[in-house]
Structures are given as structure tokens and as C-alpha cells.
């Protein structure tokens, strides 16, 4: 079972209280972008076995979106953090590196 801590209200809850929102830190390509960029934005998603960054919404709780760094293989959650970030914060990266020294890094 996946247990997440909502960074907006501090509640520790299990998966069914949250709604998943797919991959985090996507950059939007809208009007003016090339077809390839737009296709990538719409369809290309990472599907790693290991460290992954995701969007979640505390649907049955405070209703806020937040981001989570977790391992898709072990369900270990490294950190949850505010949605208002365009890339993983340094402290989250440091936490992951401490636990997964051979992780190739974000991107």
C-alpha cells in the first residue's frame, strides 16, 4: 500500500484518499511549438522502474495538488512537496541520492 503525506495539510493517508495525476514537472508546449514537441507533451511519458516524480491530489482531504517522489518498484516515498515547483527541489534530490546512490538523476 502506498502511504503519502500531504504537504499542504500534513495528513498521512493511504492511496485511496488521493487521486493520481500522472507524471510531474511536464513542460507545456502550446501554440507556436513544433508538432514533435506538442506530441511529446501530450503523449510521451516516462515509465521508470525506480525513482519517479508524480502529481497527486488529496481528493478526499484538503483537495490540493502536490508532487511526490517515489520508487515505482518498492513504493518507497522519498518526499512529497508543493506543486508550485518546475523541477524537483535540491533537498528532495539529495534525499533520493542518499538512498539510491546509483540513480541516474532527474531528466
Amino acid at each position: 500500500m502506498l502511504t503519502l503525506t500531504c504537504p499542504c495539510c500534513g495528513v498521512i493517508a493511504e492511496e485511496t484518499e488521493f487521486a493520481p495525476g500522472g507524471e510531474a514537472h511536464l513542460k507545456r508546449f502550446g501554440p507556436g511549438s513544433s508538432d514533435d514537441e506538442f506530441e511529446g507533451y501530450l503523449f510521451a511519458r516516462k515509465n521508470p522502474k525506480g525513482v519517479h516524480f508524480e502529481r497527486w491530489r488529496h481528493a478526499y482531504g484538503c483537495g490540493k495538488w502536490f508532487l511526490a517522489a517515489r520508487d515505482t518498484n518498492t513504493l518507497e516515498v522519498f518526499a512529497t512537496y508543493k506543486a508550485q515547483t518546475t523541477e524537483p527541489p535540491a533537498d528532495v534530490i539529495a534525499k533520493i541520492k542518499a538512498k539510491r546512490p546509483d540513480w541516474e538523476g532527474y531528466k
Binding site: I12, E14, Y60, G61
Partner: peptide, 17 residues
Amino acid sequence: SPADIATLPEGEIRRSR
């Protein structure tokens, strides 16, 4: 509810399902 009721302190409101 999936919430941890046993540890719910007095004076705390828990939104859950």
C-alpha cells in the same frame, strides 16, 4: 474510513472518506 482513528487527537478534524 482508511484514516487512523486511534491516533486522532482531541481537537483535530480529519477529512477523509
